[in-house]
Design a protein around this nucleic acid. Structure first.
Lengths: 346, 346
DNA sequence: CTGAAAGCGCTAACAG
DNA sequence: CTGTTAGCGCTTTCAG
């Protein structure tokens, strides 16, 4: 199909200058005579030159690539990779992370390599990938609280930034949300509506964020005279939301308000409520969390606690970039504020 | 933080052999004395050696990386990249593609770089990326029929495989579904239920797949005495499904069956139907397309035409791999068969 | 079966 | 401001 790709050498010959000069104009280094710059640019256009990334990386020690890894805590046996991947993308949350990350990376001509790490084997693969210099650093989104990957990355001195604070401290930067405040926002809304017999469908309690949302909710309720809030643990999936509310309803038939740990579970809650003939929000008010596309797709549309995921993801990429460039050396945390978005469900 | 990373040289010295020998054992080339192999392996372990990817790529001219590009036909102005990205991931369909692709790639230690190409600028970026040798080839999933990217890739002689046949012929391999058969499957189901006043909510007609699904459906209906099937065009989103069925219902209040171009739109259809007091499937039966997670999340769960997306995506990656390795030179098409999955909606 | 040597294409001192 | 010169770390003939 194609002749050998042209190299710097070819362009240099074509323009009648040295390789170094061509390299300078390609990399936008000043100190090059405008006339010669033009000459070189023409030669580049004529030859259709494209700089070889591997050669450049070899000397710059940069790939302009970062690993975007979705990481679980699972053993190989727990579930197959297919199931894991499917679950990850079933939650609109992850799409927003990608969107934010790409929003930061792309204008800088950087690119994300998608990796999944839910088994020991795949965690090794991620570490190896980075140690080989295939990517300059890692952005990691954990689905479990006790994900061993962050520590592994830190131990290897690999640049990495986490989405959400890890369950046990690690010397890595992270972005996170003030989850407790989010729980409070949900409680305030339900209280304002007059709900007093509320319950929550929490996310996995092993995930710090789930626990904090729950704590924030309970604190606020307690402060208003509701000392005890029954709760059922879910797994952030629609199905688990359905199961949790079903249990809750059986034990507490007089519920008048539900706070779900994410929108997907809130959607499941709304479904079951409707199936059992309860009107939302008249009979039972429902508040979700995230403000993902599920919140809008749900009937009724969900009142929910918005997590500025795109901004957080973008900031995460920015932090990593700074670590890579050496512009930042100490681990840092960036905590964002949640916001109540009122729709129809509460 | 870290001492300079060890190189082949270091390992060689440590093991008392030459670089070439170390390279051989690292790459699993035989013709190396087992005893020496052991020696080298120990040296590798001791030094913590990890081969430098850039250096290797420079000589092998392979990166073991492929671009996974989601491509639209938009102009820069049409919509922002954020919106595009969000829309892409809002459809569970894309998650399945990723799952299938990763399923093929990972066991082979290959990795996908995620790219979005909905503007001219970003299309250029994709081509440049590949021409620089940053990735060995591209897997492209187009959201529009008249996506200019495939032709651009073919013109540059870059290895690429498409998900779905492009609107206008291009000399690239692709995987696809027998969409017409899928439409027929949906019609057969509706007919078997006794529906005679059916309508369809199609995908964008600029996408060949949408048109074919519609054609297949209409053909089958016509063959059973229903010559005319009203149709409203949607955009594969839940919202567009809602809008389309609303129009349809206004014009044809006596509908008894709906075929939607994908599950997300079918979900919108079910919502509106419920809101208007029509029971699914008793009053109106609904058949979706894809068998994505939306089909299960929908109330009632959707009867739908299953597209084996993971298998297709995996096959797509396989084709690309063959093209890259030179094991396949001619463009090839792989067409998969759809399958009816019966749930509650029809 | 192993070692020596020649690059892969590029950047970055260092001279001029 | 431009050219010369070393490599970056690895694979791969080609000898031995």
């Amino acid at each position: 199909m194609s002749r050998q790709a042209p190299t710097l050498e070819d362009v240099a010959r074509e323009a009648g200058v040295s390789r170094a000069t061509v390299s300078r104009v390609v990399n936008g280094v000043r100190n090059v005579d405008p006339a010669i710059q033009d000459l070189v640019r023409q030669a580049i256009a004529r030859t259709g030159y494209a700089p070889n990334r591997a050669a450049r990386s070899l000397v710059t020690r940069r790939t302009e690539t970062v690993a975007l890894v979705v990481s679980g805590a699972g053993d190989a046996s727990e579930e197959t990779q297919d199931v894991f991947t499917a679950r990850v993308f079933a939650d609109p949350f992850f799409g927003r992370v990608v969107s934010g990350v790409v929003g930061y990376l792309r204008p800088r001509s950087m690119h994300p390599v998608l990796m999944f790490a839910e088994t020991e084997e795949s965690r090794e693969q991620v570490v190896r990938y980075l140690r080989q210099g295939s990517a300059d650093g890692a952005l990691v989104v954990s689905t479990h609280g006790d994900d061993p990957l962050p520590a592994r990355l830190a131990d290897n001195g690999l640049p990495a930034v986490l989405f959400a604070r890890p369950a046990r401290p690690v010397a890595l930067s992270y972005v996170d949300l003030a989850h407790r405040d989010g729980g409070r926002l949900a409680a305030d809304r339900l209280l304002a509506r007059g709900c007093r017999r509320t319950a929550t469908v929490s996310g996995p309690l092993a995930v710090p964020a789930s626990q904090e949302r729950l704590d924030g909710f309970r604190d606020a309720m307690a402060r208003h005279g509701c000392p005890w809030v029954p709760s059922a643990e879910g797994g952030f999936t629609l199905e688990s939301g359905r199961a949790a509310i079903t249990r809750l309803l059986a034990a507490h038939p007089d519920l008048d308000g539900v706070f779900a740990g994410n929108d997907l579970m809130a959607q499941g809650v709304c479904q079951v409520l409707a199936e059992q003939g309860r009107r939302v929000p008249q009979d039972v008010a429902v508040v979700g969390f995230d403000d993902s596309s599920a919140a809008v797709g749900c009937r009724p549309p969900l009142t929910t606690v918005r997590q500025p995921v795109e901004d957080m993801a973008s900031a995460m990429a920015g932090l990593l970039d700074e670590h890579i460039r050496g512009a930042r050396t100490e681990p840092t945390s960036l905590v964002f504020d949640p916001e109540l978005v009122v729709r129809a469900s509460a």
